[in-house]
């Protein structure tokens, strides 16, 4: 997740996990953004359009990380 909004530089990284879990829990994305205080559309699109692919990369990296040290 990007730390800051690409356009205005506002902090958005810390809102990602709450946003994701609440939207996955069935809440309306727009209302979640409102309650998180993300008012500008540049910051809103950061959260709305983000796709976290790190979990998939981690799945792949499992095979290459040494099991024990």
């Amino acid at each position: 997740m990007p730390v800051r909004c690409f356009t205005c530089g506002g902090l958005i990284g810390d809102k990602w996990e709450e946003f994701r879990s609440r939207v996955d829990g069935g809440e309306d994305a727009g209302k979640v953004l409102d309650s998180l205080g993300v008012t500008r559309y540049c910051c809103r699109r950061m959260l709305l359009s983000h796709l976290d692919i790190l979990d998939e990369i981690l799945e792949f990296s499992k095979k290459f990380t040494k099991g024990s040290r």
Partner: peptide, 15 residues
């Protein structure tokens, strides 16, 4: 940090 909840990275087991 202004917020303690900014994710920096995710680590897999043993990373």
């Amino acid at each position: 940090p202004v917020s303690d909840k900014i994710p920096i990275i995710k680590l897999e087991v043993n990373q």
